[in-house]
């Protein structure tokens, strides 16, 4: 019991230290461009935290999270710009609606095997994208919403600068991490992990595997939706482009790169990939003059393949493993040299 509280306390202090660092960062980094990259990292982190819950704990892959992200963004965008709904209410509406869509899609799917969820979410992602492109009256079609989306504001404070938005995004991101952490260490989280350990045993203890997977799927869709809303109010303009299949894949890459079974994985994965993407945008045109933004996909592909082959548990676990192997080897050499 004492051990348990000690662990919990350690977990909590880690989170507090990390939060402090995050919230101090914008006072050190004052360059607007860097700040905007950090804001985007924060927004993506929210999506990927949800995705990690789904992939790492429910063992399901979603290739349609960009759709949920897009549903959030467009719900916020359309409700606030066209119908003058309050942004916070729109965000909530987006989250609830997206969660419901995920639930409805997920319900029949979770009776099936692993691959099918990947497929169904992929299908959903493409359908949503087609709708965003084609429903011109509602969405503005390929060129995006015509009316601009208002900035978010808290009371009188309008969040119209990177500096101000940074705090909002990262507070939400930290909340997302903390809440996800709560889930992992709850009855539901244990049930989900038990499925990984032994599905037979889990069921024999009364764990309704399908139900819990479905719940986490809906939760992760809501995460993505909220991130989408935040994105819409940050950029204040949206078009279908950022919500396609490539984005879904990018989220999966981020989740996998960070590693699925640690709450720190998402931040690491998102940061590595986002920074890499930004760096490539700088570097590639210098090497290949005619190159456009598409070239980053080469690197994405290779990272994914390499990670799946060499560090299938992701960077976080991979680093820990490497460290342990190194320590083990060192101990052995110490022993032999001692002899």
């Amino acid at each position: 019991m004492k051990d348990l509280t000690k662990r919990k306390r350690l977990r909590h202090s880690l989170i507090i230290i990390f939060s402090a660092i995050i919230l101090l960062l914008p006072f050190i980094i004052t360059n607007n461009y860097y700040l905007s990259v950090l804001v985007i990292i924060g927004i993506h982190t929210i999506v990927v935290v949800g995705l990690c819950l789904l992939m790492g704990y429910a063992g399901q892959i979603s290739l349609g999270h960009a759709a949920f992200y897009g549903l959030g963004a467009y719900t916020s965008g359309i409700l606030t710009s066209t119908y003058n709904v309050s942004p916070w209410i729109a965000m909530l509406a987006g989250a609830v609606g997206t969660g419901a869509v995920a639930y409805i899609i997920g319900k029949p799917i979770f009776r099936l095997k692993e691959h099918y969820l990947a497929l169904a979410t992929l299908g959903l992602g493409l359908i949503v994208h087609v709708i965003l492109m084609e429903e011109v009256e509602l969405t503005g079609g390929p060129s995006g919403l015509t009316k601009s989306i208002p900035y978010l504001s808290i009371g009188k404070l309008v969040l119209n600068s990177d500096f101000k938005y940074y705090f909002l995004v990262w507070i939400v991101a930290l909340l997302a991490i903390i809440l996800a952490n709560n889930v992992v260490h709850s009855r539901i989280g244990r049930a989900l992990r038990s499925i990984h350990g032994s599905e037979f045993a889990a069921q024999s203890l009364g764990v309704d595997t399908g139900k819990h997977k479905l719940q986490v799927f809906a939760l992760s869709a809501m995460y993505a939706s909220i991130a989408g809303s935040l994105y819409a109010h940050y950029i204040t303009f949206i078009s279908p482009n950022p919500f396609g299949l490539m984005t879904s894949i990018q989220f999966v890459v981020m989740a996998v790169v960070g590693g699925l079974s640690s709450i720190w994985g998402p931040i690491l994965g998102v940061s590595v990939i986002t920074v890499l993407t930004e760096a490539l945008k700088e570097v590639i045109p210098k090497i290949i003059p005619q190159a456009g933004g598409e070239y980053e996909i080469v690197v994405f592909g290779f990272i994914l393949v390499m990670i799946m082959i060499f560090l299938p548990e992701g960077l976080t676990a991979g680093v820990v493993n490497l460290y342990e192997r190194w320590r083990y080897r060192k101990e052995r050499t110490d022993e032999t040299s001692g002899n």
Binding site: L179, N182, R187, I188, A191, L205, G206, Q215, V216, L219
Partner: peptide, 13 residues
């Protein structure tokens, strides 16, 4: 598991 009732909402908050 069956002797407890915490649902997803309870798990999150």
């Amino acid at each position: 598991h069956t002797r407890s009732t915490t649902g997803l909402m309870g798990a999150v908050f």
